[in-house]
Design a binder for these strands. Structure first.
Lengths: 243, 243
DNA sequence: TAGTTCAACTTGTATATACAACTTAGCATA
DNA sequence: TATGCTAAGTTGTATATACAAGTTGAACTA
């Protein structure tokens, strides 16, 4: 098994990525051409080319025939509807993640959710509320209802170690999700918990997740408008023939 | 300018795609190996390889070292951010669609957009603002900047007949889009135009669209929080490595 | 029979080479 | 001065070759 980092094209990729990270090449600045990389990295042109091609594919560079290869502007991204672990996201930004558990209990399933979870009036469901923080500043309120059939030991979990999201997906692999996104006025609880400014709205994401046909969880995520954006990129399929 | 369809690797790609479409190779079935393609298509192995690599990148094939290249199972896609025509949406709900054009002009490209549109300071760009209405109630403000290279006759268009969206996609087929979604406080213009209640926030969608490598348009859409939700559903893709 | 080895085939990495296509800057010409 | 051309540099496509590395099945051996 070859060490991935000894592959010549990975060496070149890392060289370029390093240079971008430490500021050697700013956005829209030209990076070394294929032939220059042949010299400085001691690889063949096709290998240098592969490195640049892959970085282009990854959105880190862009290329222009006849002119050169350039550093692409950073995407402020935070992936659109892919379900991501908020703790990882925070850490990827180089910040400190923490959370606070506000409520964790078993309770009667709210009537408006009964038929989604396929439960009868009076049957129990798990309910948790927590706040996720980045550098100790709250960035998300997570209210979650969990199907006991999907995760019977939900209450015993230590959510400092593992967010509900991660725990649930380990219990039962996600196969489907549905989202609803809205802007909302904040209620007093949100205002205090998220430390909102006066009249600052929240971005609300309702997410329902399934594992095969079993509804696993319904959750509402509230983000302070001033500190959160959702971003997403997609490419249309089947346009290829029209080129 | 070479016709893209004469490029040898495109020939191979189309050959494979054709075979998948007409059922020659079903899901999880092996497609011809690189060396077989060398024979049947009369290209070099590196060219055949490039074709298979790109189709793999596109999620149409998957590869296993030592075993071969296989047809990937179809994704149950779900365009969360599929770009829809708001007029059609309104009509599908059985309501009456109308709009009002507030601004339509040529102007200097704002500096913060220069890079994206690949323009120089002082070069012109098209700018339009319009309001979309459902049963005469405003549901969306659309502010749009359009690349003159992509739609030189944008100003002459009659947007009562065809929304900017539709017009632009007829001019140049969309191949890529990026979205940014936020909750925002409304400014006075929005409050009046969208007839918002006091302190009612807006859901803001920033959308950038490309046709091949050409940035076609950047637009901001503002929706009244009380009358708009985004919904989406998606299904996880299969983990091909686990086969 | 059960286990091992090996040959053939597959994809993965890497190099060297050639020419096409596009961009830019500077030079030559009208 | 203004225009057009050319040369140099860049990315894009294509080929030929070599060896590494993973998989499979058939032949061989204990």
């Amino acid at each position: 098994m070859t060490d991935l980092n000894t592959r010549r094209y990975m060496v070149v990729k890392n060289f370029i990525k390093q240079g971008i990270e430490d500021g050697s090449w700013a956005e829209h600045k030209r990076v070394p051409s294929e032939n220059e990389l042949v010299e400085t990295c001691g690889v063949s042109r096709m290998t240098a080319r592969r490195a640049l091609d892959e970085l282009t594919e990854e959105g880190i560079l862009y290329r222009a025939q006849g002119r050169g290869t350039f550093v692409a502007p950073k995407k402020l991204h935070s992936p659109m509807l892919e379900i991501r672990n908020i703790a990882d996201e925070v850490k990827e930004r180089g910040n400190e993640y923490s959370n606070e558990l506000i409520l964790l209990q078993k309770e009667h399933c709210p009537t408006h959710l009964l038929h989604y979870f396929d439960l009868e009036e009076g049957e129990d469901i798990f309910h948790s509320i927590m706040v996720h923080k980045e550098n100790n500043k709250p960035i998300q309120i997570e209210q979650r209802y969990v199907n006991p059939k999907a995760a019977p030991d939900y209450l015993k979990q230590n959510f400092n170690e593992m967010t509900p999201n991660v725990y649930l997906s380990e219990m039962a692999p996600l196969t489907q999700a549905e989202h609803q996104i809205e802007a909302k006025e904040a209620d007093p609880f949100m205002r205090v918990t998220l430390k909102l400014q006066e009249h600052e709205p929240v971005l609300s994401i309702d997410r329902t997740t399934w594992s095969k046909d079993l509804l696993v969880s319904y959750c509402q995520l509230f983000h302070p408008a001033s500190r959160f954006k959702l971003t997403g990129r997609f490419t249309t399929e089947h346009q290829l023939t029209e080129l």
